[in-house]
C-alpha cells in the first residue's frame, strides 16, 4: 500500500538537511493541480522550499507547553517520548494499546514535503517523514458504520507547564471525517528531515493534514478512536464561531478576527514575506471530499 500520493521528487532526491537549504527547485508536486486550473495550478506548481530545522522547531503552537511561540521549544525538552503508547479503540476490529515501534512496524515510511498553514496566517514548508494514516486504520480494521476518527494528545502535567496552568482544556482533542482520515495526503508523522520529531513538533508521533489549518494536525498522540459521530475538537470547543470542525485552509472564508486571504512565510525575513493563501492550502485534489458542501457554512 501507501505511495498513493507522490511528490514529483523521488526518494533519490531526499538529501541531508544542509543540502536541502540550497535546493530551490523542489516542486510542490501537484499531480492533480490541473484540475483547479488557472491561478491555482500555477501557484501550486511553484517551487516549495522547505524551512530550516531551526525555523520548524522554534516557532510552534503547542499550548501544553505554553502559549508563546517559543514556549514549546523552551519547555518541551522534559517530555519523555520513549517508551510511548498509543491506544487504538472504538469501531475497529483490532483495538489495543501499542508501543510506538509496534504501531510503526510494517508501515511504509515516506518523505512528504508539505505546506503547513497556521490559522494565525503564517506558514511553513515541512519535509515530514511518516506513513499514511489509511494504512494504520486499515490494519486496525475499520468497522462498517464508522464515520469519523478522533485523536487525543498526551496530558503530562509534570512536564507540561501549560497543562498545569490550564491555559485551555486538556487533553487536546481533534478529529477528522473518515474519508479525510484515509485520504492519501493524510499522514502520521514521526520525523522531519529524517530526524525523529522534536518534542515541540509533536514527538513521537503526530497527525499531518496539509490542507487544513495547523491546529487540526494534532501532536504527541496517545489515542486514536474510530467512531460513528463527529468528535469534539479543542479549538471548536473554545470558540466555535472562530474555529470550525473542518477548518480547511480557505482564502475566501476569513477568521472573524483576521483575513485568511494571505499569510506570512516563516523565514521570509523582514521584507516580502507575505504571499497569497491557496484554496485547500494548494492541495486541490481534496476538493472532491467536500463536493456539494457550503464551505462558508462548514468552515
Amino acid at each position: 500500500m501507501a505511495h498513493r500520493w507522490k511528490n514529483t521528487f523521488t526518494h533519490a532526491d531526499v538529501t541531508p538537511e544542509p543540502l536541502w537549504l540550497n535546493r530551490r527547485a523542489i516542486l510542490a508536486g501537484m499531480a492533480g493541480a490541473g484540475a483547479l486550473g488557472g491561478v491555482g495550478s500555477v501557484a501550486a506548481q511553484e517551487a516549495l522550499e522547505p524551512n530550516t530545522w531551526e525555523q520548524i522547531t522554534t516557532y510552534n503552537n503547542f499550548y501544553e507547553f505554553g502559549t508563546g511561540k517559543s514556549d514549546p521549544s523552551d519547555n518541551a525538552g522534559d517530555m519523555v517520548t520513549d517508551p510511548w503508547e498509543i491506544t487504538i479503540d472504538g469501531m475497529v476490529d483490532n483495538p489495543g494499546t501499542f508501543s510506538l515501534a509496534e504501531l510503526v512496524d510494517g508501515m511504509t515510511m515516506e518523505e512528504r514535503l508539505y505546506r503547513f498553514r497556521c490559522v494565525e496566517a503564517w506558514a511553513m514548508v515541512v519535509p515530514w517523514n511518516g506513513f499514511e494514516l489509511a494504512d494504520l486504520l486499515n490494519r486496525a480494521g475499520i468497522q462498517d458504520g464508522a464515520t469519523h476518527v478522533a485523536f487525543e494528545t498526551a496530558v503530562l502535567p509534570d512536564v507540561m507547564p501549560g497543562v498545569r496552568r490550564n491555559v485551555i482544556e486538556f487533553p487536546y482533542v481533534e478529529g477528522l471525517r473518515l474519508d479525510e482520515a484515509v485520504h492519501p495526503l493524510t499522514i502520521m508523522a514521526t520525523g522531519i528531515y529524517d530526524r525523529p520529531l522534536a518534542n515541540q513538533s509533536g514527538a513521537p508521533i503526530r497527525l499531518v493534514v496539509p490542507w487544513k489549518y495547523g491546529f487540526k494536525s494534532i501532536k504527541s498522540i496517545v489515542k486514536i478512536t474510530v467512531t460513528n459521530e463527529q468528535p469534539p475538537t479543542t479549538w471548536n470547543k473554545i470558540n466555535a464561531r472562530e474555529y470550525g470542525f473542518y477548518s480547511n485552509v480557505n482564502p475566501q472564508v476569513d477568521h472573524p478576527r483576521w483575513s485568511q486571504a494571505s499569510h506570512r512565510v516563516i523565514g521570509g525575513g523582514l521584507f516580502n514575506s507575505r504571499e497569497d493563501t491557496l484554496m485547500f492550502n494548494g492541495y486541490p485534489e481534496v476538493a472532491s471530499l467536500y463536493e456539494g458542501m457550503d464551505l462558508r457554512e462548514n468552515y
Binding site: W122, I266, L270
Partner: peptide, 13 residues
C-alpha cells in the same frame, strides 16, 4: 535584533 535573528524566526510579528 530582528534582522540578525535575535527575535526568532518570525521577526515581523
Amino acid at each position: 535584533l530582528a534582522q540578525t535573528g535575535g527575535m526568532g524566526v518570525e521577526p515581523i510579528n
